[in-house]
Design a protein around this nucleic acid. Structure first.
Lengths: 199, 199
DNA sequence: CTCCCGATTGACTGGTCAATCAACCGGAGG
DNA sequence: CCTCCGGTTGATTGACCAGTCAATCGGGAG
């Protein structure tokens, strides 16, 4: 039991899947591509996962649950609504900086693929929106934010703006070279929060 | 030539495709589904279009070119940057109100499907972003907007927020019942523009 | 009435993969 | 040395579907 380095094949397959999905997109990748990239036999993929879909589901769940925790954490820890939203934005931008391929897969194949996997995970996705909406609602309650914007609208606009920015980098709409992630994040948070302030 | 009502089969097929794509998504619809929905034979689809892809391309081009014109028009006609952006937002929201199924197809299958059709139409999509960025840049030049936000960032955030809101309706994240499109649009434009103002 | 041609039909083909499964390997335990 | 068993292999199968194509229809021109 628990041999020293079991060369965790399951993890190997997941990591390979991230690379291949990011490169070719989910629909265009064959299970054999994943197996080849991981350097394992075709059938082994089916030993660890019951279908190609399940591989993507696993990747999404792993990452999205971290986001949900991060939002809760931001809500609990940060002082002002503005700092809470900044913390959320920071987590998402850092996720992209840390593993752009994984974020590309999650955004392109799940979050924005509402006809396929987005449908399956609609509930988890919505949970994130609602947590952000709660931050906005609290900000309205304390008078930091104006009260005439439905919190859910603000939440969607906030998250949508972030995702669109990430998509811009992912697909080269914005050149990645002259881009400082932190600066972009600050500008985005500043703009949205200023827009949400009273008057 | 030009008989009175030629029962334009080509149009019939395109309209049927909108409904089927909206219902099942592009990948999940077979060409036979489109033919059945249109009430024509399978082969006729290939008489008018050279592939299933071309049907979707046609739908996208038709509508996106209208958006590009609308943005240009807004830039030329409206007085202030804020009114220009409001006009752009109005056009997009009205497009959804007028034909939600078509907008769903365009957003889900093209605009946000950057691994498949988005790739093909990246250039046209980017052109819209750039036109919006130009409006922002002009607003900065005239001192209406603060100058420390890259126009392209603002453009992506603006468009991304709109699209996320539409997605919210499309997929039921936001209940459509307690929603007034015009109100939502005004709030969005107000928030973003307030956020873009100096100080 | 006949010819012609574009519109229309739908059976059929070819290729692609996801998923299955029987066989194989190697180490732990007896 | 043998047995057992989970991990591993990759050839095979079965389903699915985009795109082809030969045949048919129908109306206008001669």
């Amino acid at each position: 039991m628990a041999q020293a380095p079991p060369a965790d094949k399951r993890r190997l397959i997941l990591d390979a899947a991230i690379r291949v999905f990011a490169r070719q997109g989910f629909h265009a990748t064959r299970v054999s591509d994943i197996a080849d990239e991981a350097g394992v036999a075709y059938g082994l993929v089916y030993h660890y996962f019951k279908s190609k879909d399940e591989v993507l589901n696993e990747l999404f769940i792993e990452r999205w649950s971290l986001l949900l925790v991060a939002i809760e954490e931001a809500d609990k820890t940060a002082a002002s609504p503005r700092e809470k939203l900044a913390a959320v934005a920071t987590f998402i931008f850092d996720s992209y900086r840390h593993d752009p391929e994984l974020m590309k897969v999650i955004i392109v194949e799940v979050t924005r693929a509402a006809n396929s996997f987005g449908q399956t995970h609609l509930e988890e996705i919505r949970r994130a929106y609602e947590s952000i909406a709660k931050i906005v609602a609290d900000g309205q309650g304390s008078g930091t934010f104006r009260g005439d914007v439905a919190p859910m609208f603000a939440s969607l606009a906030f998250y949508g703006a972030i995702e669109q920015l990430l998509s811009g980098w992912i697909f080269g709409t914005i050149p990645a070279s002259d881009t400082d992630f932190d600066e972009a994040r600050d500008l985005l948070v500043t703009t949205i929060c200023d827009g949400l302030e009273p008057r």
